[in-house]
Amino acid sequence: MDRLNDTGILSAVWYAAKDVRIERRVRPALEPGQVRLRVTCCGICGSDMHEYLNGPHAIPVGTPHPISGVAAPVVLGHEFTGEVLETKGDCGAVKIGQRVAVEPEYRCGTCPACLRGDYNLCEKMGFAGLMGHGGMAEEAVLPHYMLHTLPDAVTDRQAAVLEPAAVALHALRRSGLMAGQSVAVVGAGPIGLLLVQFAAVAGARRIVVSDVSEARLARARALGATETVNSMSGHLPTQAQGVDMAYEAVGVQAALEDAIHSVRKGGKVILVGLFGAPARIDAFDLVNREVEIIPSCGYRHVYPDLIGMIAGGVIDPSLIVTRQVSLADVVTDGFERLAVPNDDVKVLAVP
């Protein structure tokens, strides 16, 4: 299934850090319960960039993932959408010709977390495009449970950003944000900007966003932020002027400290960013101010609601897309350009 030839499926394949190759791969046969998609759009995620720059982090090397059966080299891409080309066996409601969004979380269906319905916490959890072959290719093969049918009112461009939007919506639900409350969003990357949109829709009266990029802060204001702070020269509100809750959407120590310091006594800090190193916290401060720490992992049971919100015009996650590149040029025009500081937020690769 992983052999190469000159007439196969064009794919972006991770072999090692700084070694992503655009190559053609043999079209795999379907197993029962699997679906073949023609990929229409695939986003480059921060996780993809981590793997490209200094991986492996999540990509299995040597030992295959227990559900996908895949180890590196692996086709990247977990933020994607497409059209159903082929199915095999019982694939539920999935039919050939449907446009679908991909919810790329692997799940076993039998562990305690899966049986509770918390499939994002599955003991064998993984993501297509990291722990198995993904959608940065002309075609993708996936288990049918990952697919959600799209109405005509949701565009391919919007559907390609459903995955990071799902991360943001799950975090918002974990936080319990209510209308009239105040929030801080630390980091105006894709997840941070989507959190701004959701917080505005939820009725937050004050949305303060911090980042080092003036262009991203301007985008945050356009999406609903009431205040912005360049963290190179300014500071978020603290203590008595602190917000009800803060979302850490960067995954670095300084951002975590900013988030914790920005909340009032009795406030909440929601951890959304993925930390590449152990983080430190001042436990005395958390206890003394009774600050609640809430981690948010991936998403569960949000895709149907999210698709409905987009179709109804409530939110448009594609507003964070800043550039589109061809799949053939995704290394040079995508990964390499994102590896240096610039104002890009979300880049889509199109086969």
Rank of each mutant, 00 (worst) to 15 (best):
V75P: 00
I310T: 05
N54V: 07
R173P: 04
A58K: 14
D329I: 00
Q181T: 07
Y145C: 11
V330G: 02
L53I: 14
C122R: 02
T238S: 11
E163Y: 00
E290G: 05
V229R: 00
R99L: 05
L53A: 14
A160F: 09
G273E: 01
V183R: 01
I320F: 07
L348F: 07
L306D: 04
A283P: 05
S296Q: 04
R107V: 07
H144K: 02
L53Q: 15
A225F: 03
L194A: 10
M1Q: 14
Q158M: 09
P295S: 01
C297Q: 14
G298C: 12
F275A: 10
G308L: 06
H235M: 10
L85I: 05
P112V: 07
L142D: 00
F335W: 07
R24N: 13
Q158H: 04
I44G: 05
L85C: 01
E336P: 06
A188W: 02
R116Q: 12
I293H: 05
V345S: 08
G129F: 11
R116P: 02
A204K: 04
E123H: 12
I320N: 13
V84H: 01
A222I: 07
G308V: 06
L10D: 04
L30W: 09
T226N: 06
L4S: 09
F284L: 15
G298T: 10
H235N: 12
Q253C: 08
V61R: 15
F284S: 14
V35L: 00
P351I: 06
E336G: 05
T40S: 11
D344A: 12
V331R: 00
E290I: 03
Y52I: 13
G126P: 14
A153M: 05
I281T: 15
S47N: 05
P143L: 07
A200Q: 13
A159S: 09
L217D: 02
G126F: 08
